[in-house]
Design a protein around this nucleic acid. Structure first.
Length: 636
RNA sequence: GCCGCUGUAGCUCAGAGGCAGAGCAGCUGUUUCGUAAACAGCAGGUCGUGGGUUCAAGUCCCACCGGCGGCUCCA
């Protein structure tokens, strides 16, 4: 059964949509990519007809996504033309279309500044105005080598192409090595704008020289370009670093790079999520443990982390021992497992841990809460028999679904990450484990796409990605099979047959790093947390000082029901207090004046601005308790 | 770590060789107010740090440290 499901699942690869030539989708900040309309063509080995019949179908008759792809691709050429004109000695590398636009990489005699972008953009507009025809043909490699004899990057690209001929595209006096996909003329570029210049390693390898990458934005119309820029501004308003400060949730300081200071309100949010996960752990049969922070490096040598990640671990000497601060929980959990005898009756054993992890991330990658050096995870390791494997994976799927629903995250998309270059275990084990994971996804009625070579060193993994409120995709949970540690830690259990067996081991996290999750969740909700997670659930706003006592009574009544309620007893007028609460995104405002005091009520207002009229306090309490206990995902 | 940009009050920003500024936030006082900002006053700074040029340096130069945007990495 698994095998047939497996084949079905593997087909997911074909439907995978990725920007061609674009960097792999990504990481850290780059994980946040606005969803792209660019659809997949065949990236590798385009057929001859693709190129010789470049303009066989009129540009205007192409599907819109193909037109956009070509506009962006041609814009990259026009950019390179402008750069070569500005710097005749420039070496040009690659210039693909990407989400939202295009880029081109150059090796230049000096660094570009923002004024240069203006100049280049003006020069590009001249090419657009000239409306030059873009022509392409297949030429023999030898001729291409002659044409690009002064262009080392192009020569390297030519060497890497397997065919006997390569694509050659021209417009005006500009020529480029290119597999094609272009507009008919330079006048068909739509609305574009040079965006920024950034460094990028040649072929993405940090051992190679760093080139200057010029990014451009490009959309079919001015309106769409403006809409994208507007969306980017909106995204900035949701930036968790900004909201973290505005909502008084956390701060970062150079005194502890990459280690957030959680403020009281942020801590409520943090602990709210931890409490929630603990509740699920009880329901799903997990056992929580607390293992050490500091281990003799022997542990990390056994697990393989020392060999694979020593540079990213904090290490120091103490009492002539070499100590490594824990970057992951799994070796500690394996050590716990190995410390006792286990019967098959104890399996599956699901060990969860929330304690703090430290990873010495390189300074350049740190980013708010989404890339930190100190964090904790809703991390767990499942030790089970081979028979139990499927059910354990399904159980994790159910839990993920539950969490996504409760948090209002919608349906995740799944990627299956396969064997990386640095890996433990045999190729056969990898293949088997990868198949198992893929099959479990399809038999759970879900689909996945492949992420070749992106697995952990100890095993293949499933990644769960969710799309946030403004269309950006984020990786959250993972499920991984471990092919190394059960053996390297000598894990054994006694089976029904009385013999020793090696358990299977599954790593899984649902929210992943709590820090990162909260960062993502802040941006997803724009700070409008559901009531059960809101640090302050209601603010009581007295109209005049004579209502202060009554406001205090209201707060006490609600606090008695376990609600987090504050009274705004400051000197502001009511309107200002409402504004303040609104900006703090407090779910409910309870305005109390003479009339409300009379009726033991409050004028209820929610953060969408709706006035819900005078409501008796006990009813407000009922409403809030219900909203909290059902974990209602309130409208924003 | 690498490339580029950037660093002035808690926050957002102006000042670009010649006395360190504004708005918001904060504090004090007046106002006691009916659904997104009452009014007045006060306080707030080694202009990221260190060095240099200059009669004079937020301002020019160098180094370092943060931050931002990319690249690389992400167990």
């Amino acid at each position: 059964m698994l095998a047939s499901c497996l084949r079905a699942g593997m087909r997911g690869e074909e439907s995978r949509v990725e920007p061609r030539e674009a960097p792999r989708v990504p990481s850290g900040r780059r994980r946040i990519v606005f969803s792209a309309p660019v659809q997949g063509r065949h990236e590798e080995n385009p057929t001859m007809s693709d190129q010789t019949n470049e303009h066989a179908v009129a540009f205007k008759d192409l599907p819109p996504e193909e037109r956009l792809f070509r506009m962006r691709h041609s814009a990259a050429h026009v950019l390179a033309e402008a750069v070569l004109e500005m710097f005749p000695e420039a070496k040009y590398a690659i210039g693909p279309p990407v989400d939202n636009g295009f880029y081109y990489d150059f090796d230049l005699p000096r660094t570009l500044n923002p004024d240069d972008l203006q100049t280049l953009e003006a020069r590009m507009r001249q090419s657009v105005k000239a409306n030059l025809p873009i022509t392409g043909e297949q030429i023999p490699k030898d001729r291409a080598r002659e044409i690009f004899k002064d262009q080392p990057y192009k020569l390297e690209l030519i060497d890497g192409i397997e065919d006997d001929t390569v694509g050659h595209f021209m417009h005006g006096g500009f020529e480029d090595l290119c597999r094609g996909g272009h507009t008919e003329t330079t006048g068909q570029l739509g609305a574009f704008k040079l965006d920024r210049v950034a460094g990028a390693y040649w072929r993405g390898d940090e051992k190679n020289p760093m080139l200057q990458r010029v990014y451009g934005l490009l959309f079919p119309t001015k309106e769409e370009l403006a809409a994208y820029e507007h969306q980017r501004e909106e995204a900035e308003k949701r930036d968790h670093r900004r909201l973290g400060r505005e909502l008084d949730l956390f701060h970062l300081d150079p005194i502890a790079p990459g280690a957030p200071f959680w403020h009281p309100k942020g801590t409520l949010l943090y602990n709210g999520l931890v409490d929630y996960m603990r509740e699920l752990y009880r329901e799903y049969g997990y056992d929580e443990v607390v293992t050490p922070q500091l281990f003799n490096v022997d542990l990390w040598k056994t697990s393989g982390h020392y060999q694979n990640f020593a540079d990213d671990m904090y290490m120091f000497e103490s009492d002539d021992e070499e100590i490594g601060v824990k970057p992951m929980n799994c070796p500690g959990h394996c050590h716990y497992f190995a410390s006792g005898h286990h019967s098959y009756r104890e399996l599956p054993l699901r060990l969860a841990e929330f304690t703090r992890l430290h990873r010495n991330e390189r300074s350049g990658v740190l980013h708010g809460l989404t890339r930190v050096r100190a964090f904790s995870q809703d991390d767990a390791h499942i030790y089970c028999t081979p028979d139990q494997f499927d059910e354990e994976i399904f159980s994790v799927f159910r839990m993920i679904e539950r969490v996504y629903t409760d948090l209002g995250l919608g349906e995740p998309t799944i990627r299956l990450a396969t064997r990386p270059e640095k890996a433990v275990g045999s190729a056969e084990d990898w293949e088997r484990a990868t198949e198992l994971l893929g099959a479990s996804v399809t038999s759970a009625g879900k689909e996945y796409t492949l992420a070749p070579g992106e697995g952990a060193f100890y095993g293949p993994k499933l990644e769960f990605h969710f799309k946030d409120a403004i269309g950006r995709s984020w990786q959250l949970g993972t499920v991984q099979v471990d092919l190394g540690m059960p053996a390297s830690f000598g894990l054994r259990y006694i089976g029904e047959d009385g013999e020793e067996h090696q358990p299977m081991m599954i790593h899984r996290a649902i929210l992943g790093s709590l820090e990162r999750f909260i960062g993502v969740y802040i941006e997803h909700t724009g700070g409008h947390f559901p009531l059960w997670l809101a640090p302050v659930q209601a603010v009581v706003i007295p109209i005049a000082d004579r209502h202060l006592d009554y406001a205090g009574t209201v707060r006490a009544q609600l606090q008695a029901r376990g609600l987090r309620v504050q009274v705004d007893d400051g000197p502001d007028r009511m309107g200002a207090k409402i504004r303040k609460a609104q900006l703090q995104k407090v779910p409910y405002m309870l305005v109390v004046g003479d009339r409300e005091q009379e009726q033991q009520a409050a004028a209820l207002r929610d953060r969408t601005g709706d006035d819900l009229g005078a409501v008796p306090i006990f009813q407000i309490g009922d409403r809030m308790v219900d909203e909290r206990d059902t974990r209602s995902v309130q409208a924003r």
